[in-house]
Design a protein around this nucleic acid. Structure first.
Lengths: 243, 243
DNA sequence: CCAAAAGTGTTTGTTATACACCCATGT
DNA sequence: ACATGGGTGTATAACAAACACTTTTGG
Protein backbone atom coordinates (compact mmCIF):
# COMPACT_ATOMS: atom_id res chain seq x y z
CA UNK A 1 0.00 0.00 0.00
CA UNK A 2 1.23 3.50 -0.82
CA UNK A 3 2.44 5.74 1.96
CA UNK A 4 0.44 8.91 2.12
CA UNK A 5 2.73 11.96 2.11
CA UNK A 6 0.13 14.64 2.47
CA UNK A 7 -3.54 15.31 2.40
CA UNK A 8 -5.74 15.02 -0.72
CA UNK A 9 -3.50 12.55 -2.49
CA UNK A 10 -5.40 9.33 -2.16
CA UNK A 11 -7.73 7.96 -4.77
CA UNK A 12 -10.27 5.21 -4.72
CA UNK A 13 -11.58 5.37 -8.22
CA UNK A 14 -12.00 1.78 -9.20
CA UNK A 15 -14.14 1.45 -12.32
CA UNK A 16 -16.14 -1.46 -13.60
CA UNK A 17 -13.19 -2.36 -15.81
CA UNK A 18 -11.12 -2.95 -12.70
CA UNK A 19 -13.40 -5.77 -11.64
CA UNK A 20 -12.81 -9.35 -12.69
CA UNK A 21 -15.98 -11.32 -13.42
CA UNK A 22 -16.21 -14.45 -11.30
CA UNK A 23 -18.48 -17.48 -11.41
CA UNK A 24 -21.19 -17.18 -8.77
CA UNK A 25 -23.24 -20.13 -7.64
CA UNK A 26 -26.01 -20.75 -5.15
CA UNK A 27 -26.09 -23.87 -3.03
CA UNK A 28 -29.33 -24.79 -1.37
CA UNK A 29 -29.54 -26.61 1.96
CA UNK A 30 -33.05 -28.01 1.62
CA UNK A 31 -34.47 -29.07 4.98
CA UNK A 32 -37.46 -31.32 5.37
CA UNK A 33 -39.10 -33.00 8.37
CA UNK A 34 -39.88 -36.63 7.71
CA UNK A 35 -43.36 -37.03 9.23
CA UNK A 36 -43.04 -40.79 9.67
CA UNK A 37 -39.55 -41.08 11.07
CA UNK A 38 -39.92 -37.68 12.77
CA UNK A 39 -36.43 -36.73 11.69
CA UNK A 40 -34.97 -33.55 10.24
CA UNK A 41 -33.47 -34.30 6.85
CA UNK A 42 -31.53 -32.61 4.07
CA UNK A 43 -32.00 -33.27 0.37
CA UNK A 44 -28.81 -34.28 -1.47
CA UNK A 45 -28.06 -35.58 -4.92
CA UNK A 46 -25.14 -37.18 -6.71
CA UNK A 47 -23.04 -34.63 -8.51
CA UNK A 48 -23.08 -35.29 -12.24
CA UNK A 49 -20.07 -33.28 -13.42
CA UNK A 50 -16.34 -33.42 -12.82
CA UNK A 51 -14.52 -32.94 -10.59
CA UNK A 52 -15.95 -35.21 -7.94
CA UNK A 53 -18.77 -36.49 -10.14
CA UNK A 54 -20.71 -39.23 -8.36
CA UNK A 55 -20.21 -37.78 -4.90
CA UNK A 56 -23.09 -36.51 -2.80
CA UNK A 57 -23.65 -32.81 -3.05
CA UNK A 58 -25.98 -30.01 -2.16
CA UNK A 59 -28.28 -28.87 -4.90
CA UNK A 60 -26.87 -25.80 -6.57
CA UNK A 61 -26.62 -23.83 -9.75
CA UNK A 62 -24.80 -20.91 -11.27
CA UNK A 63 -26.40 -17.51 -10.98
CA UNK A 64 -27.23 -16.34 -14.48
CA UNK A 65 -27.09 -12.77 -15.68
CA UNK A 66 -30.87 -12.41 -15.88
CA UNK A 67 -31.69 -13.57 -12.37
CA UNK A 68 -30.96 -12.63 -8.78
CA UNK A 69 -29.33 -15.12 -6.46
CA UNK A 70 -32.65 -15.65 -4.68
CA UNK A 71 -34.27 -16.49 -7.97
CA UNK A 72 -31.49 -18.92 -8.89
CA UNK A 73 -31.96 -20.64 -5.57
CA UNK A 74 -35.72 -20.82 -6.07
CA UNK A 75 -35.28 -22.08 -9.61
CA UNK A 76 -33.17 -25.00 -8.51
CA UNK A 77 -35.47 -25.80 -5.62
CA UNK A 78 -38.47 -25.89 -7.91
CA UNK A 79 -36.59 -28.01 -10.42
CA UNK A 80 -35.92 -30.66 -7.83
CA UNK A 81 -39.07 -30.59 -5.71
CA UNK A 82 -41.77 -28.97 -7.83
CA UNK A 83 -42.40 -26.52 -4.99
CA UNK A 84 -42.79 -22.75 -5.23
CA UNK A 85 -43.46 -20.13 -2.54
CA UNK A 86 -41.12 -21.74 -0.10
CA UNK A 87 -39.25 -20.34 2.89
CA UNK A 88 -35.79 -19.60 1.53
CA UNK A 89 -33.04 -17.47 3.06
CA UNK A 90 -29.42 -16.62 2.52
CA UNK A 91 -27.20 -17.67 5.41
CA UNK A 92 -23.56 -17.28 4.35
CA UNK A 93 -21.14 -16.76 1.48
CA UNK A 94 -18.19 -18.97 0.57
CA UNK A 95 -15.45 -17.27 -1.37
CA UNK A 96 -12.10 -18.93 -0.68
CA UNK A 97 -10.15 -18.87 -3.90
CA UNK A 98 -9.37 -22.60 -3.92
CA UNK A 99 -12.59 -23.93 -2.47
CA UNK A 100 -13.79 -25.43 -5.76
CA UNK A 101 -11.07 -27.44 -7.52
CA UNK A 102 -12.83 -26.99 -10.87
CA UNK A 103 -12.77 -23.20 -11.03
CA UNK A 104 -12.90 -20.04 -8.97
CA UNK A 105 -16.49 -20.02 -7.79
CA UNK A 106 -18.08 -17.85 -5.12
CA UNK A 107 -20.98 -19.70 -3.61
CA UNK A 108 -23.97 -18.17 -1.89
CA UNK A 109 -25.48 -20.44 0.74
CA UNK A 110 -29.27 -20.55 0.96
CA UNK A 111 -31.41 -22.76 3.12
CA UNK A 112 -35.02 -23.64 2.55
CA UNK A 113 -37.71 -25.26 4.65
CA UNK A 114 -40.16 -27.44 2.79
CA UNK A 115 -43.06 -29.70 3.60
CA UNK A 116 -41.91 -33.14 2.55
CA UNK A 117 -45.52 -34.22 2.04
CA UNK A 118 -46.00 -31.55 -0.64
CA UNK A 119 -42.88 -32.24 -2.68
CA UNK A 120 -43.16 -34.15 -5.94
CA UNK A 121 -41.62 -37.44 -4.91
CA UNK A 122 -41.22 -38.65 -8.49
CA UNK A 123 -39.28 -35.50 -9.36
CA UNK A 124 -36.91 -35.99 -6.44
CA UNK A 125 -36.43 -39.61 -7.46
CA UNK A 126 -35.84 -38.75 -11.09
CA UNK A 127 -32.76 -36.77 -10.06
CA UNK A 128 -31.59 -39.61 -7.84
CA UNK A 129 -31.89 -37.19 -4.98
CA UNK A 130 -32.22 -38.54 -1.46
CA UNK A 131 -33.14 -37.32 1.96
CA UNK A 132 -30.44 -37.71 4.62
CA UNK A 133 -30.92 -37.40 8.33
CA UNK A 134 -28.81 -34.53 9.66
CA UNK A 135 -26.85 -36.97 11.83
CA UNK A 136 -26.01 -39.15 8.86
CA UNK A 137 -24.78 -36.76 6.19
CA UNK A 138 -22.14 -38.48 4.03
CA UNK A 139 -18.91 -36.86 2.89
CA UNK A 140 -19.92 -34.17 0.45
CA UNK A 141 -18.30 -32.34 -2.39
CA UNK A 142 -16.14 -29.23 -1.78
CA UNK A 143 -17.23 -27.40 1.39
CA UNK A 144 -20.82 -28.60 1.40
CA UNK A 145 -20.54 -30.34 4.78
CA UNK A 146 -19.54 -27.02 6.30
CA UNK A 147 -22.45 -25.34 4.53
CA UNK A 148 -24.90 -27.77 6.12
CA UNK A 149 -23.41 -27.11 9.55
CA UNK A 150 -23.69 -23.36 9.02
CA UNK A 151 -27.24 -23.65 7.70
CA UNK A 152 -28.24 -25.81 10.66
CA UNK A 153 -26.84 -23.28 13.12
CA UNK A 154 -28.72 -20.52 11.37
CA UNK A 155 -31.89 -22.60 11.44
CA UNK A 156 -31.40 -23.27 15.16
CA UNK A 157 -30.83 -19.61 15.98
CA UNK A 158 -33.77 -18.45 13.90
CA UNK A 159 -36.07 -21.18 15.26
CA UNK A 160 -35.43 -20.06 18.81
CA UNK A 161 -36.77 -16.60 18.06
CA UNK A 162 -39.22 -16.94 15.21
CA UNK A 163 -41.81 -19.61 14.50
CA UNK A 164 -40.31 -20.66 11.19
CA UNK A 165 -40.54 -24.34 12.07
CA UNK A 166 -44.11 -24.40 10.78
CA UNK A 167 -42.73 -24.26 7.26
CA UNK A 168 -41.58 -27.83 7.79
CA UNK A 169 -44.97 -29.19 8.90
CA UNK A 170 -48.23 -29.78 7.05
CA UNK A 171 -50.92 -27.11 7.43
CA UNK A 172 -52.53 -29.16 10.17
CA UNK A 173 -50.24 -30.64 12.76
CA UNK A 174 -50.36 -31.82 16.34
CA UNK A 175 -48.47 -30.52 19.35
CA UNK A 176 -46.56 -33.79 19.80
CA UNK A 177 -45.32 -33.48 16.19
CA UNK A 178 -44.35 -29.87 16.72
CA UNK A 179 -42.44 -30.82 19.85
CA UNK A 180 -40.60 -33.57 18.01
CA UNK A 181 -39.73 -31.14 15.24
CA UNK A 182 -38.26 -28.61 17.65
CA UNK A 183 -36.28 -31.30 19.40
CA UNK A 184 -34.88 -32.36 16.06
CA UNK A 185 -33.96 -28.84 15.02
CA UNK A 186 -32.40 -27.90 18.34
CA UNK A 187 -30.95 -31.38 18.85
CA UNK A 188 -31.95 -31.28 22.47
CA UNK A 189 -34.86 -32.62 24.51
CA UNK A 190 -37.57 -30.18 25.54
CA UNK A 191 -39.96 -30.61 28.47
CA UNK A 192 -43.33 -31.26 26.86
CA UNK A 193 -45.43 -29.49 29.50
CA UNK A 194 -43.34 -26.33 29.41
CA UNK A 195 -43.21 -26.42 25.64
CA UNK A 196 -46.99 -26.64 25.36
CA UNK A 197 -47.42 -23.87 27.87
CA UNK A 198 -45.14 -21.49 26.00
CA UNK A 199 -46.25 -22.23 22.48
CA UNK A 200 -49.98 -22.30 23.25
CA UNK A 201 -50.05 -19.32 25.60
CA UNK A 202 -48.65 -17.09 22.85
CA UNK A 203 -51.97 -17.34 21.05
CA UNK A 204 -51.08 -17.86 17.41
CA UNK A 205 -51.99 -21.53 17.23
CA UNK A 206 -55.63 -22.31 16.45
CA UNK A 207 -56.91 -25.64 17.71
CA UNK A 208 -59.18 -27.41 15.25
CA UNK A 209 -61.95 -29.84 16.15
CA UNK A 210 -60.37 -32.72 14.28
CA UNK A 211 -57.84 -35.11 15.69
CA UNK A 212 -54.94 -37.09 14.32
CA UNK A 213 -55.41 -40.67 15.44
CA UNK A 214 -52.55 -42.13 13.45
CA UNK A 215 -50.15 -42.28 16.37
CA UNK A 216 -52.42 -42.94 19.30
CA UNK A 217 -55.83 -44.27 20.22
CA UNK A 218 -56.81 -41.15 22.05
CA UNK A 219 -55.83 -38.95 19.13
CA UNK A 220 -54.09 -35.57 19.21
CA UNK A 221 -55.81 -32.34 18.29
CA UNK A 222 -54.92 -30.68 15.00
CA UNK A 223 -53.58 -27.15 15.22
CA UNK A 224 -53.05 -24.49 12.60
CA UNK A 225 -50.56 -21.65 12.54
CA UNK A 226 -52.41 -18.32 12.49
CA UNK A 227 -50.05 -15.96 10.75
CA UNK A 228 -52.24 -12.85 11.19
CA UNK A 229 -52.39 -13.43 14.93
CA UNK A 230 -48.64 -13.92 14.95
CA UNK A 231 -47.96 -10.67 13.08
CA UNK A 232 -50.26 -8.79 15.46
CA UNK A 233 -48.27 -10.14 18.39
CA UNK A 234 -44.96 -9.23 16.78
CA UNK A 235 -46.21 -5.67 16.30
CA UNK A 236 -46.89 -5.55 20.04
CA UNK A 237 -43.32 -6.67 20.72
CA UNK A 238 -43.83 -10.40 21.12
CA UNK A 239 -41.00 -12.70 20.31
CA UNK A 240 -40.69 -16.42 20.83
CA UNK A 241 -37.74 -17.48 22.95
CA UNK A 242 -36.88 -21.14 23.25
CA UNK A 243 -34.08 -22.48 25.46
CA UNK B 1 -40.04 -26.51 -16.66
CA UNK B 2 -40.17 -29.90 -18.33
CA UNK B 3 -42.82 -32.37 -17.34
CA UNK B 4 -41.34 -35.59 -16.12
CA UNK B 5 -42.83 -38.55 -17.92
CA UNK B 6 -41.05 -41.30 -16.11
CA UNK B 7 -38.33 -41.99 -13.62
CA UNK B 8 -34.60 -41.57 -14.31
CA UNK B 9 -35.01 -38.97 -17.02
CA UNK B 10 -33.95 -35.81 -15.27
CA UNK B 11 -30.49 -34.31 -15.45
CA UNK B 12 -28.78 -31.66 -13.48
CA UNK B 13 -25.37 -31.65 -15.12
CA UNK B 14 -24.47 -28.01 -15.29
CA UNK B 15 -20.78 -27.57 -16.02
CA UNK B 16 -18.52 -24.63 -15.37
CA UNK B 17 -19.13 -23.52 -18.96
CA UNK B 18 -22.79 -23.06 -18.11
CA UNK B 19 -21.96 -20.37 -15.59
CA UNK B 20 -21.73 -16.71 -16.55
CA UNK B 21 -19.00 -14.79 -14.75
CA UNK B 22 -20.37 -11.81 -12.86
CA UNK B 23 -18.73 -8.83 -11.20
CA UNK B 24 -18.62 -9.35 -7.44
CA UNK B 25 -18.00 -6.51 -5.03
CA UNK B 26 -17.75 -6.12 -1.29
CA UNK B 27 -19.25 -3.14 0.48
CA UNK B 28 -18.10 -2.41 3.98
CA UNK B 29 -20.28 -0.79 6.61
CA UNK B 30 -17.57 0.55 8.90
CA UNK B 31 -18.90 1.35 12.35
CA UNK B 32 -17.07 3.50 14.87
CA UNK B 33 -18.01 4.96 18.24
CA UNK B 34 -17.08 8.60 18.54
CA UNK B 35 -15.65 8.84 22.06
CA UNK B 36 -16.28 12.58 22.36
CA UNK B 37 -19.77 12.84 20.97
CA UNK B 38 -20.59 9.35 22.28
CA UNK B 39 -22.33 8.53 19.01
CA UNK B 40 -22.30 5.49 16.76
CA UNK B 41 -21.06 6.48 13.32
CA UNK B 42 -20.48 5.01 9.89
CA UNK B 43 -17.59 5.90 7.58
CA UNK B 44 -18.64 7.09 4.12
CA UNK B 45 -16.80 8.62 1.18
CA UNK B 46 -17.72 10.38 -2.03
CA UNK B 47 -17.90 7.99 -4.94
CA UNK B 48 -15.31 8.88 -7.54
CA UNK B 49 -16.60 7.01 -10.59
CA UNK B 50 -19.70 7.23 -12.75
CA UNK B 51 -22.54 6.65 -12.45
CA UNK B 52 -23.43 8.71 -9.40
CA UNK B 53 -19.89 10.07 -8.95
CA UNK B 54 -19.81 12.66 -6.15
CA UNK B 55 -22.54 11.00 -4.11
CA UNK B 56 -21.88 9.55 -0.68
CA UNK B 57 -21.22 5.85 -0.69
CA UNK B 58 -20.09 2.94 1.40
CA UNK B 59 -16.51 1.91 0.95
CA UNK B 60 -16.28 -1.01 -1.41
CA UNK B 61 -14.19 -2.78 -3.98
CA UNK B 62 -14.39 -5.56 -6.51
CA UNK B 63 -13.34 -9.02 -5.40
CA UNK B 64 -10.27 -9.99 -7.42
CA UNK B 65 -9.46 -13.49 -8.59
CA UNK B 66 -6.61 -13.92 -6.12
CA UNK B 67 -8.49 -12.99 -2.97
CA UNK B 68 -11.46 -14.13 -0.95
CA UNK B 69 -14.31 -11.74 -0.27
CA UNK B 70 -13.17 -11.40 3.36
CA UNK B 71 -9.74 -10.39 2.15
CA UNK B 72 -11.16 -7.85 -0.27
CA UNK B 73 -13.18 -6.35 2.52
CA UNK B 74 -10.11 -6.23 4.80
CA UNK B 75 -8.03 -4.74 2.02
CA UNK B 76 -10.37 -1.83 1.51
CA UNK B 77 -10.74 -1.29 5.24
CA UNK B 78 -6.97 -1.12 5.68
CA UNK B 79 -6.65 1.19 2.70
CA UNK B 80 -9.03 3.70 4.26
CA UNK B 81 -8.21 3.42 7.95
CA UNK B 82 -4.76 1.87 8.20
CA UNK B 83 -6.19 -0.77 10.54
CA UNK B 84 -5.66 -4.53 10.40
CA UNK B 85 -6.99 -7.31 12.64
CA UNK B 86 -10.41 -5.80 12.86
CA UNK B 87 -13.79 -7.34 13.63
CA UNK B 88 -15.32 -7.92 10.20
CA UNK B 89 -18.32 -10.06 9.27
CA UNK B 90 -20.53 -10.79 6.32
CA UNK B 91 -24.16 -9.85 6.91
CA UNK B 92 -26.02 -10.08 3.60
CA UNK B 93 -25.76 -10.38 -0.16
CA UNK B 94 -27.30 -8.04 -2.72
CA UNK B 95 -27.88 -9.56 -6.12
CA UNK B 96 -30.82 -7.89 -7.84
CA UNK B 97 -30.00 -7.70 -11.52
CA UNK B 98 -30.64 -3.96 -11.84
CA UNK B 99 -29.35 -2.80 -8.48
CA UNK B 100 -26.23 -1.13 -9.91
CA UNK B 101 -27.02 1.05 -12.96
CA UNK B 102 -23.42 0.77 -14.17
CA UNK B 103 -23.24 -3.01 -14.54
CA UNK B 104 -24.51 -6.30 -13.18
CA UNK B 105 -22.75 -6.47 -9.84
CA UNK B 106 -23.41 -8.83 -6.96
CA UNK B 107 -22.41 -7.14 -3.74
CA UNK B 108 -21.43 -8.84 -0.52
CA UNK B 109 -22.21 -6.76 2.53
CA UNK B 110 -19.65 -6.77 5.33
CA UNK B 111 -19.66 -4.76 8.50
CA UNK B 112 -16.68 -3.93 10.66
CA UNK B 113 -16.24 -2.51 14.12
CA UNK B 114 -13.24 -0.28 14.62
CA UNK B 115 -11.78 1.85 17.36
CA UNK B 116 -11.97 5.39 16.01
CA UNK B 117 -9.05 6.41 18.21
CA UNK B 118 -6.76 3.91 16.45
CA UNK B 119 -7.61 4.79 12.86
CA UNK B 120 -5.19 6.90 10.83
CA UNK B 121 -7.11 10.15 10.69
CA UNK B 122 -4.94 11.59 7.92
CA UNK B 123 -5.66 8.55 5.76
CA UNK B 124 -9.39 8.91 6.25
CA UNK B 125 -9.13 12.59 5.39
CA UNK B 126 -7.01 11.99 2.33
CA UNK B 127 -9.89 10.02 0.82
CA UNK B 128 -12.35 12.76 1.77
CA UNK B 129 -14.04 10.15 3.90
CA UNK B 130 -16.30 11.28 6.73
CA UNK B 131 -17.99 9.80 9.76
CA UNK B 132 -21.79 10.13 9.82
CA UNK B 133 -23.99 9.54 12.81
CA UNK B 134 -26.36 6.65 12.13
CA UNK B 135 -29.35 8.98 12.47
CA UNK B 136 -27.94 11.36 9.88
CA UNK B 137 -26.93 9.19 6.97
CA UNK B 138 -27.37 11.09 3.68
CA UNK B 139 -28.86 9.62 0.53
CA UNK B 140 -26.38 7.07 -0.69
CA UNK B 141 -25.52 5.47 -3.97
CA UNK B 142 -27.42 2.38 -5.21
CA UNK B 143 -28.78 0.33 -2.30
CA UNK B 144 -26.24 1.43 0.30
CA UNK B 145 -28.82 2.97 2.62
CA UNK B 146 -30.51 -0.41 2.81
CA UNK B 147 -27.15 -2.04 3.47
CA UNK B 148 -26.55 0.22 6.46
CA UNK B 149 -29.97 -0.61 7.84
CA UNK B 150 -29.31 -4.33 7.43
CA UNK B 151 -25.85 -4.04 8.98
CA UNK B 152 -27.23 -2.10 11.93
CA UNK B 153 -29.89 -4.73 12.54
CA UNK B 154 -27.26 -7.42 12.43
CA UNK B 155 -25.08 -5.44 14.81
CA UNK B 156 -28.02 -4.99 17.18
CA UNK B 157 -28.90 -8.67 17.16
CA UNK B 158 -25.31 -9.77 17.64
CA UNK B 159 -24.67 -7.20 20.37
CA UNK B 160 -27.56 -8.52 22.39
CA UNK B 161 -25.99 -11.98 22.55
CA UNK B 162 -22.25 -11.49 22.23
CA UNK B 163 -19.97 -8.85 23.70
CA UNK B 164 -18.78 -7.55 20.33
CA UNK B 165 -19.32 -3.95 21.37
CA UNK B 166 -15.85 -3.89 22.93
CA UNK B 167 -14.41 -3.79 19.43
CA UNK B 168 -15.70 -0.23 19.22
CA UNK B 169 -14.07 0.98 22.45
CA UNK B 170 -10.44 1.61 23.40
CA UNK B 171 -8.69 -1.14 25.37
CA UNK B 172 -9.49 0.71 28.58
CA UNK B 173 -12.96 2.07 28.97
CA UNK B 174 -15.39 3.01 31.71
CA UNK B 175 -18.79 1.55 32.47
CA UNK B 176 -20.57 4.83 31.69
CA UNK B 177 -18.96 4.80 28.21
CA UNK B 178 -19.92 1.18 27.70
CA UNK B 179 -23.49 1.97 28.69
CA UNK B 180 -23.62 4.88 26.26
CA UNK B 181 -22.26 2.65 23.52
CA UNK B 182 -24.92 0.01 24.08
CA UNK B 183 -27.63 2.63 24.13
CA UNK B 184 -26.37 3.93 20.81
CA UNK B 185 -26.21 0.49 19.22
CA UNK B 186 -29.62 -0.60 20.47
CA UNK B 187 -31.10 2.89 20.05
CA UNK B 188 -32.88 2.52 23.35
CA UNK B 189 -32.22 3.66 26.90
CA UNK B 190 -30.93 1.08 29.37
CA UNK B 191 -31.23 1.23 33.14
CA UNK B 192 -27.71 1.92 34.38
CA UNK B 193 -28.00 -0.08 37.62
CA UNK B 194 -29.35 -3.18 35.91
CA UNK B 195 -26.83 -2.82 33.11
CA UNK B 196 -23.91 -2.67 35.55
CA UNK B 197 -25.24 -5.63 37.45
CA UNK B 198 -25.53 -7.81 34.38
CA UNK B 199 -22.32 -6.85 32.67
CA UNK B 200 -20.16 -6.93 35.80
CA UNK B 201 -21.65 -10.06 37.35
CA UNK B 202 -20.70 -12.04 34.25
CA UNK B 203 -17.07 -11.77 35.27
CA UNK B 204 -15.21 -10.99 32.05
CA UNK B 205 -14.54 -7.35 32.79
CA UNK B 206 -11.39 -6.61 34.79
CA UNK B 207 -11.41 -3.42 36.81
CA UNK B 208 -8.13 -1.54 36.72
CA UNK B 209 -6.82 0.76 39.44
CA UNK B 210 -6.76 3.80 37.20
CA UNK B 211 -9.64 6.15 36.65
CA UNK B 212 -10.85 8.29 33.79
CA UNK B 213 -11.38 11.78 35.15
CA UNK B 214 -12.13 13.43 31.84
CA UNK B 215 -15.89 13.43 32.33
CA UNK B 216 -16.28 13.86 36.06
CA UNK B 217 -14.48 15.04 39.15
CA UNK B 218 -14.98 11.75 40.93
CA UNK B 219 -13.59 9.79 38.01
CA UNK B 220 -14.79 6.45 36.64
CA UNK B 221 -12.81 3.25 36.93
CA UNK B 222 -11.16 1.85 33.84
CA UNK B 223 -12.16 -1.66 32.84
CA UNK B 224 -10.66 -4.11 30.39
CA UNK B 225 -12.34 -6.90 28.45
CA UNK B 226 -10.87 -10.26 29.47
CA UNK B 227 -11.30 -12.45 26.43
CA UNK B 228 -9.94 -15.60 28.06
CA UNK B 229 -12.43 -15.27 30.90
CA UNK B 230 -15.18 -14.72 28.35
CA UNK B 231 -14.28 -17.82 26.34
CA UNK B 232 -14.20 -19.89 29.51
CA UNK B 233 -17.70 -18.70 30.34
CA UNK B 234 -18.97 -19.44 26.84
CA UNK B 235 -17.64 -22.97 27.15
CA UNK B 236 -19.71 -23.34 30.30
CA UNK B 237 -22.82 -22.21 28.43
CA UNK B 238 -22.83 -18.52 29.27
CA UNK B 239 -24.39 -16.12 26.86
CA UNK B 240 -25.05 -12.43 27.25
CA UNK B 241 -28.67 -11.43 26.80
CA UNK B 242 -29.59 -7.78 26.65
CA UNK B 243 -33.17 -6.50 26.38
C1' DC C 1 -19.88 23.93 49.82
C1' DC C 2 -21.93 22.46 45.86
C1' DA C 3 -22.58 20.76 41.24
C1' DA C 4 -22.05 16.78 38.48
C1' DA C 5 -21.20 12.33 37.44
C1' DA C 6 -20.12 7.62 39.61
C1' DG C 7 -21.42 4.10 42.17
C1' DT C 8 -24.40 1.01 45.00
C1' DG C 9 -29.13 -2.54 46.90
C1' DT C 10 -33.68 -3.90 47.54
C1' DT C 11 -38.22 -5.04 46.45
C1' DT C 12 -41.51 -6.84 43.33
C1' DG C 13 -43.12 -9.16 39.47
C1' DT C 14 -42.45 -12.32 35.85
C1' DT C 15 -40.75 -16.21 33.73
C1' DA C 16 -38.24 -20.65 33.67
C1' DT C 17 -37.76 -25.04 35.53
C1' DA C 18 -38.72 -29.29 37.51
C1' DC C 19 -41.76 -32.61 38.23
C1' DA C 20 -46.24 -36.75 38.22
C1' DC C 21 -50.64 -37.98 37.41
C1' DC C 22 -55.16 -38.60 34.95
C1' DC C 23 -57.54 -39.15 30.35
C1' DA C 24 -59.34 -41.31 26.22
C1' DT C 25 -59.72 -45.13 23.40
C1' DG C 26 -58.77 -49.20 20.26
C1' DT C 27 -57.62 -53.66 20.87
C1' DA D 1 -58.94 -54.21 31.37
C1' DC D 2 -54.95 -52.49 29.80
C1' DA D 3 -51.42 -50.44 27.07
C1' DT D 4 -50.37 -46.33 24.69
C1' DG D 5 -49.70 -41.87 23.79
C1' DG D 6 -52.22 -37.20 24.90
C1' DG D 7 -53.13 -33.81 27.92
C1' DT D 8 -52.98 -30.98 32.29
C1' DG D 9 -51.16 -27.98 37.02
C1' DT D 10 -48.34 -26.49 40.77
C1' DA D 11 -44.51 -25.25 43.65
C1' DT D 12 -39.89 -23.32 43.58
C1' DA D 13 -36.07 -20.91 41.79
C1' DA D 14 -33.98 -17.68 38.96
C1' DC D 15 -34.01 -13.63 36.65
C1' DA D 16 -35.80 -9.06 34.97
C1' DA D 17 -37.58 -4.61 36.07
C1' DA D 18 -38.42 -0.68 38.61
C1' DC D 19 -36.72 2.42 41.53
C1' DA D 20 -33.53 6.59 44.93
C1' DC D 21 -29.99 7.69 47.52
C1' DT D 22 -24.93 8.20 48.85
C1' DT D 23 -20.14 9.09 47.35
C1' DT D 24 -16.38 11.68 45.53
C1' DT D 25 -13.94 15.69 44.37
C1' DG D 26 -12.46 19.84 41.53
C1' DG D 27 -13.66 24.28 41.26
Amino acid sequence: MNEIKGINLAKHNETYQDGTPILVAVDNVIFGFDPVEEKLKVLLFKRQVEPQAGNWSLIGSFVQSDESAELASQRILTKFTGLTDVFLEHFNTYSDIDRDPGARVISLGYYSLIRIDEQKEELVQSFHAQWFHIDEIPDLVIDHNQMILDALHTLQNESRRKPIGFNLLPEKFTIPKLLKLYQEILQAPLDDRNFRKKILSAGYLDRLDSKDKSTSKKGAYHYQFNIEAYFDLVKKGYSLVLP
